Simulated assay, not measured.
Amino acid sequence: MAARIDRLVTSGTFSLDGGTWDVDNNVWIVGDDEDAIVIDAAHDAEAILAALGGRRLRAIVCTHAHNDHIDAAPALAARTGATIHLHPDDLPLWQRTHPDSAPDAELADGQVLTIAGTDLTVLHTPGHAPGAVCLHAPALGAVFTGDTLFQGGPGATGRSFSDFPTIVGSIRDRLLTLPPETKVLTGHGEPTTIGDEAPHLDEWIRRGH
Rank of each mutant, 00 (worst) to 15 (best):
A132W: 01
W204H: 12
H136L: 04
A102N: 05
D22V: 14
D68A: 05
D71G: 03
V61M: 05
G81S: 09
A36G: 02
E190H: 12
W94Y: 14
I5Q: 06
H136E: 03
V23T: 15
A47S: 11
I194M: 08
H87L: 10
V143Y: 00
A47T: 01
I194T: 08
S11T: 12
V38N: 11
H85T: 04
N26Q: 09
R159C: 03
V27S: 04
H66C: 00
G169W: 07
A132S: 14
G12P: 05
T186W: 11
V143S: 01
R55S: 02
W204G: 04
L52S: 07
V23G: 09
P103Q: 13
I84C: 02
L113N: 03
S170F: 12
A75V: 00
T166G: 01
G53F: 13
T157W: 04
R56Q: 07
F164H: 13
D109G: 12
A116F: 04
T80E: 09
P138A: 07
G155Y: 11
E190P: 07
P74Y: 08
A65L: 03
E190Y: 05
D40G: 09
R7M: 09
I171Q: 06
V133Y: 01
A73L: 00
G155A: 13
S15H: 13
I29G: 08
A3H: 10
I167A: 05
E197Y: 08
W28G: 00
C134M: 15
D119T: 11
V27H: 05
L140T: 07
L8I: 09
T182M: 10
L185E: 06
F144Q: 05
P99E: 06
A45T: 10
P154V: 02
D163V: 03
A105E: 12
P74H: 08
L201D: 10
P74G: 07
D6T: 02
L135F: 11
T114A: 07
V9F: 05
A139N: 03
P154K: 12
D24I: 00
L185Q: 06
V168E: 00
G187W: 02
S162V: 05
L176Y: 14
G18N: 08
D71N: 15
L113I: 15
T166E: 11
H69N: 14
A59N: 01
V23Y: 10
P180I: 03
D35L: 09
A129C: 11
T118Q: 14
N26Y: 07
G189V: 10
D35R: 15
A50D: 12
G187R: 08
V143W: 00
L52H: 11
D22T: 15
T148L: 04
V112I: 13
A156P: 00
L86E: 03
G31M: 07
M1L: 06
F144H: 04
H188V: 15
I70D: 04
P103I: 08
A105S: 11
F14C: 00
A156L: 02
V184P: 01
P126K: 13
A47D: 01
T145E: 06
Q95A: 15
G131Y: 09
P179E: 15
D68H: 12
L49G: 06
A77Q: 04
P199E: 14
W94L: 09
G53Y: 13
G53S: 12
Q95P: 01
G158L: 08
H64C: 01
A77P: 01
P92S: 07
P165G: 13
G155W: 08
C134A: 15
Q95W: 14
G12D: 06
P179F: 14
W94P: 05
H209E: 11
D22M: 12
G189Q: 11
G195D: 13
P92N: 07
T118A: 14
